Amino acid sequence: NQASVVANQLIPINTALTLVAMRSEVVTPVGIPAEDIPRLVSMQVNRAVPLGTTLMPDMVKGYA
């Protein structure tokens, strides 16, 4: 099972992602792969992401 990126805190809309804001977890459905965490740092989310939410490619500006 592949680990996905999960919000480690509430991430407000247009907030730049940080290492502290993300964690890796095996979840269903699978979201952005955990190995992409370094690439996600400083990218912005295009919606509010609640704690525990799996990050999907369409939630991160410039990711997809």
Rank of each mutant, 00 (worst) to 15 (best):
N1I: 14
N1W: 14
N1R: 11
N1M: 15
Q2Y: 14
Q2R: 15
Q2E: 09
Q2T: 12
Q2K: 14
A3L: 12
A3C: 08
A3G: 09
A3P: 13
S4L: 00
S4P: 01
S4H: 02
S4Q: 01
S4D: 02
S4F: 03
S4R: 01
V5G: 01
V5I: 11
V5F: 02
V6S: 03
V6N: 03
V6E: 02
A7L: 05
A7M: 06
N8G: 09
Q9Y: 10
Q9G: 05
L10P: 14
L10K: 10
L10A: 13
L10H: 14
I11C: 03
I11K: 00
I11A: 02
I11F: 01
P12I: 06
P12D: 10
P12G: 07
I13T: 10
I13V: 13
I13H: 09
N14Q: 06
N14H: 11
N14E: 07
N14C: 08
N14D: 13
T15C: 09
T15F: 13
T15N: 08
T15M: 11
A16H: 13
A16K: 14
A16C: 09
A16D: 07
L17S: 03
L17Y: 00
L17G: 00
L17I: 10
T18N: 06
T18D: 06
L19I: 09
L19H: 07
V20A: 15
V20E: 15
V20N: 15
V20L: 12
V20H: 13
A21W: 06
A21M: 15
A21G: 08
A21Y: 14
A21K: 09
M22F: 04
M22S: 02
M22T: 03
M22N: 00
R23P: 02
R23Y: 05
R23L: 05
R23I: 07
S24P: 13
S24Y: 07
S24W: 08
E25L: 11
E25Q: 12
E25M: 13
V26Q: 09
V26T: 10
V27C: 06
V27Y: 03
T28W: 13
T28F: 15
T28Y: 14
T28M: 13
T28G: 05
P29G: 02
V30P: 15
V30M: 15
G31Y: 05
G31V: 02
G31P: 01
G31C: 04
G31N: 01
G31I: 01
G31A: 04
I32F: 02
I32S: 02
I32A: 00
I32L: 05
I32N: 02
P33V: 07
A34C: 07
A34L: 03
A34H: 06
E35M: 11
E35S: 14
E35V: 13
D36V: 08
D36I: 07
D36T: 06
I37T: 05
I37F: 02
I37S: 01
I37C: 04
P38E: 11
P38H: 14
P38N: 11
R39N: 10
R39D: 07
R39M: 15
L40D: 04
L40F: 00
L40R: 00
L40Y: 02
L40H: 00
V41K: 02
S42G: 15
M43N: 04
M43W: 06
M43C: 06
Q44Y: 13
Q44S: 12
Q44D: 05
V45E: 02
V45H: 01
N46D: 07
N46Y: 07
N46A: 14
R47S: 06
R47N: 05
R47Y: 07
R47Q: 14
R47V: 15
A48M: 14
A48V: 14
A48I: 11
A48D: 15
V49N: 04
V49S: 02
V49E: 05
V49K: 01
P50I: 07
P50E: 13
L51W: 08
L51R: 15
G52S: 05
G52R: 01
G52M: 04
G52E: 04
G52I: 03
G52T: 01
T53Y: 11
T53S: 14
T53K: 09
T54I: 08
T54L: 04
L55M: 08
L55R: 02
M56V: 07
M56E: 06
M56I: 07
M56W: 04
P57S: 07
P57H: 07
D58S: 14
D58E: 12
M59D: 10
V60F: 03
V60S: 02
K61N: 11
G62Q: 08
G62H: 09
Y63D: 03
Y63K: 00
Y63A: 02
A64Y: 12
A64F: 15
A64W: 11
